[in-house]
Write a protein that binds this DNA or RNA. Structure first.
Length: 430
RNA sequence: GUGGCUGUGGCCUAAUGGUUAAGGCUCCUGACUGUGACUCAGGCAACUGUGGGUUCGAGUCCCACCAGUCACCCCA
């Protein structure tokens, strides 16, 4: 039989990696709660139209990267390629507009994009995501940036930086796009073939073209910031005042654009090194038109999404230690059928006393103790024929190798004391 | 979707075109019939990614496909 392999671009998150994932998710939940965000979980798949409309046809994500299929009922279904559109659908469908504003929501989970995998890029990836709905004040933009920043700070990342830009709004962006088009048409013979297509199809994209020949053209291109309307200019300026006041480092990057249609005004990314050619660990911005686009009453929103795989890669690249859950402290070994019965009873009693314990399932005493060692047990309990006869068990300290005889009836109490005193004498790492 | 590189037990690695594909790690067993780690001895485990081709003979050379990986594109 042919070997099965995981589908391209997916990965098995093995036990050895779980501590990293646990740590990221714990930090996300903790920071999100501290800012007053409530968790929301939406389906992994939605009606295709939710994304086609919400993310926007014309974007690569919708046009080339969605996992779409018909279910048995003939419905057009798509595995979510991002969180925001689905969360907005849930907001509208559940009448969440009646909740106190601003509404703060966060999510974590898998998203799916059909891309060619490479370092830091997967077909099934995991994100954490936060949104603030119903608030047009730039303070909301600030808080979204802060929560992202704080999560990374809590994770002890270093050498991070914000990239910041504004993409305008329906009032001012069309005018800017015309300026940009005019400029590019004037330089059409100097730019790459991709950019020639982009001028018409996705004009803002020309700004983040990485080809050598396009760089001088990009450098001289008109900037959104010089063409925004008063509202957008004020919004952006206010946000920058807040960021400056807090001393948060950011780089104005007029080439920063988003691949998703719904963004307005603020766009930002958090950049880091250590994930191959990818630089963004986090991206987000404002999307004031999205809820209305999806059929809700006009409601402003701002949010971000961050890749968990990239966060884990960074933790490894920066040698950040993560807490590793302790192994069960007790391992029960035994000899003979009668002893096995006592071993099982003891296992139950220990768990009732909330002491982590495992019982040997087979093998010689030697093999059982080897198991205890491999599993990092602090104590081995050995139950043999001799001990049973006297109502005793052997309690072995695996670190030192010393052992003592303890009455069977008192083992649980003994271990409770031993483990409690051991905890006191051992300072947990910060 | 395009391009570069790479495919040998679970992992790492060896094998001038020439016997039965070798070794290390891991795992298991034993030396110690009631005691882990160290040591020693042994054992499990590979139709060399798949399919063709060249050759008397292919892990080795050629082609295709598949997979992995890195980069473009795009994004988290």
């Amino acid at each position: 039989m042919a070997k099965f392999t995981r589908p391209t671009g997916t990965q098995d998150i093995l036990p050895e990696d779980q501590p990293y994932w646990d740590h990221v998710l714990t930090c996300v939940a903790s920071v999100a709660r501290s800012y007053g965000f409530a968790r929301i979980d939406t389906p992994v798949f939605e009606a295709t139209e939710v994304f086609a409309r919400g993310v926007g046809t014309g974007t690569d994500i919708v046009d080339k990267e969605m996992y779409s299929f018909k279910d048995k009922g003939g419905n057009d279904i798509t595995l979510r390629p991002e969180f925001t559109a689905g969360v907005m659908r849930a907001y509208i469908e559940n009448g969440m507009h009646v909740l106190p504003k601003p509404l703060k929501l966060y999510s974590t989970g898998p998203v799916f994009r059909y891309e060619r995998p490479q370092a830091g890029r997967f077909r099934q990836l995991h994100q954490f995501n936060a949104e603030i709905l119903g608030e047009q004040n730039p303070l909301a933009d600030l808080e979204i940036m802060l929560i992202a920043w704080d999560i990374y700070t809590r994770l002890q990342f270093v050498n991070l930086s914000f990239q910041l830009n504004t993409t305008g709004c329906p009032v001012c962006r069309p005018g800017y796009v015309e300026h940009l088009r005019a400029y590019y048409r004037a330089h059409e013979h100097q730019i790459c073939d991709d950019c020639k297509l982009r001028i018409d199809k996705n004009p803002l994209r020309v700004l983040d073209c990485k080809r050598e020949q396009c760089q001088p053209i990009i450098a001289g291109a008109p900037k959104m910031i010089d063409h925004v309307c008063d509202d957008c200019a004020t919004h952006f300026a206010t946000l920058r005042v807040y960021l400056d006041d807090l001393g948060k480092p950011y780089t104005l990057n007029h080439r920063l654009v988003r691949g998703l249609d719904y963004y307005t005004k603020t766009v930002f990314e958090v950049w880091a090194e250590g994930i191959g050619a990818q630089s963004a660990v986090c991206g987000g911005g404002r999307y004031d038109g999205l809820i209305e686009l999806l059929g809700g009453t006009p409601t402003p929103g701002v949010g971000f999404a961050a890749g968990i795989e990239r966060a884990v890669m960074l933790m490894k690249a920066q040698h950040i230690a993560v807490p590793i859950p302790p192994a069960p402290p007790v391992f029960i070994a035994y000899l003979g059928d009668v002893a096995r019965l006592h071993a099982v009873r003891l296992l139950a009693q220990l768990h009732q006393a909330d002491i982590g314990a495992q019982v040997a399932m087979s093998g010689s005493l030697k093999a059982q103790l080897r198991q205890a060692d491999r599993r990092d047990a602090r104590f081995a309990i050995i139950i043999g024929e001799d001990e049973i006869a006297q109502g005793l068990v052997t309690l072995r300290d695996m670190a030192g190798g010393s052992q003592e005889m303890v009455p069977l009836a008192e083992v649980v109490k003994w271990l409770e004391n031993k483990l409690a005193s051991a905890e006191k004498s051992c300072t947990p790492l910060a």
